[in-house]
């Protein structure tokens, strides 16, 4: 009950910020439309709708990291969190309260991307549902990364690190915009050590119903999600004690 009230408040704070709506929901759609228009004129395999949409849904999640990190950093900078620390809310209430409301927001973002993709010609199959389900562990990784960054950095730093650096890293190292093989072995190896390319590959395989190929890619993402969540929780608890 207490946690749900806090979670509800976090959801409202995120959804009532017009910049969040513009970047979180609008920006991935704009990119999807833009790249589909390019694909219509200059066909590129990478930008075919069945290949592009999974990449865009994963890329869109980097904004979810930005939202959660910004919310936590803002709360830390204001006295609101200090006030809430003096109430019967427990550590777990705070952590779940920050993480849980972002899951439906991220899912809605993916659903919206797939709706637009359907309008652009993506065939309607049950695989879309599976792809949306597959995005949940990827979402948890991105939310945990937000909690981690929000616990570590101030609002300005979060803007730079999550808003600029992370969105770019997630774009370059995920193979959404270009084939990683084109950049060379080293770049490809680095990308494969990180979760972004695996998240995109898992989604791409799910959308064509290839679960066997999707699973080996989702495991590293789940591993990253677990490690990041543990790190985020420890950092949040540390900053809570520092109050």
């Amino acid at each position: 009950m207490r946690m749900l009230m806090f979670a509800k408040r976090c959801a409202k704070e995120i959804l009532r910020d017009p910049l969040n709506l513009m970047f979180g929901l609008g920006f991935p759609i704009v990119i999807l439309l833009l790249l589909s228009a390019i694909q219509a004129n200059v066909p590129v395999d990478l930008f075919e709708i069945a290949s592009l949409t999974p990449g865009i849904t994963v890329f869109g999640l980097s904004f979810i990291t930005l939202f959660s990190a910004t919310l936590i950093a803002k709360d830390r900078e204001s006295s609101l969190l200090q006030r809430l620390y003096t109430t019967p809310l427990k550590s777990l209430d705070f952590i779940l309260g920050y993480m849980l409301p972002v899951i439906p927001i991220a899912t809605a973002q993916s659903v919206l991307c797939y709706f637009v993709a359907i309008a652009l010609g993506l065939p309607i199959t049950i695989n879309i549902i599976y792809a949306i389900l597959m995005i949940i562990p990827i979402t948890i990784f991105h939310i945990a990364l937000g909690l981690l960054c929000g616990s570590l950095f101030n609002v300005k730093q979060v803007g730079g690190i999550c808003g600029a650096l992370l969105t770019n890293l997630s774009a370059w190292l995920s193979g959404v915009w270009f084939d990683l093989k084109l950049v060379g072995d080293t770049f490809g190896k680095i990308a494969n050590l990180l979760p972004f390319v695996h998240a995109v590959e898992a989604e791409k395989n799910m959308i064509v119903g290839n679960l066997t190929e999707a699973l080996p890619h989702i495991y590293p993402v789940i591993g990253y999600a677990i490690v990041t969540t543990i790190g985020a929780v420890l950092l949040f608890l540390r900053q809570m004690k520092k109050q």
Partner: peptide
Amino acid sequence: VSPQETAIAPNLSVKENLELMCGIH
């Protein structure tokens, strides 16, 4: 506790701020 700086949720209405504290308690 009323902290040194104003401690309210900025994007929530006044009523929602009060409801938040009621719910937390």
